[in-house]
Amino acid sequence: MINFINFLSNLAMPLIILLIVIYGVIEKKEVFDKFIEGAKDGIKIVINIFPTLIGLFLAVGTLRSSGVIDIAIKLIEPLLNIVHFPTEIMPLALLRPISGSSSIAVATDIMKTFGVDSQIGIMAAVIMGATETTLYTIAVYSSSVKIKKTRFVLIAALTADLVGIITSIIVCRFLS
């Protein structure tokens, strides 16, 4: 089972690339020209996010090295132990719904501190992949049509996030 999951994970990206290239060739598109055009957009995305990353990596890195994160974790540790929630993940779970770039910084910090291939490191990665910046999305979508009464959207979206985080933790525990 675990082998199969690994196999499928490794197959996903190459298979999708292969299918898209073959499909492009069948439809007689200039596949390489289109690839280059698209790749240029990739540069823009990274350049746009770079200054944000510098700022947030600094903030999160110094929070960790100064010992502030450890103190915060110690404070809520008894609570988390009751529900068997891994304390190391808590900073990520708290920041993830609020800000995309700060959660990248926190997730990277967790992976670096505990090891990228450790159970905690993999959990951080899966949580990052499986959840979104929920509060930010709700704010942008609601304010774009000038709506203030959001009814139950917050409950529904945050429940989904919580399930995403819990499932990530369970799957990672199962895999390692």
């Binding site: 999708i16 690339i17 898209i20 290239v21 499909y23 492009g24 439809e27 598109k29 596949v31 289109k34 690839f35 280059i36 055009e37 698209g38 790749a39 240029k40 957009d41 990739g42 540069i43 995305i45 990274v46 996010i49 770079f50 990353l53 510098i54 947030l56 990596f57 600094l58 999160v60 890195g61 110094t62 990248i104 910084a105 990277t108 670096k112």
Partner: peptide
């Protein structure tokens, strides 16, 4: 911290360009 932000951005540059390129091929089919 600033060094790991640079490292991440450089690695991300590769992955992002590759993926954006592939998806751009797909959007044209």
């Amino acid at each position: 911290s600033v060094e790991s932000a640079v490292n991440l951005s450089i690695t991300m540059l590769g992955t992002m360009c590759l993926w954006s390129g592939i998806i751009h091929v797909a959007t044209n089919t």
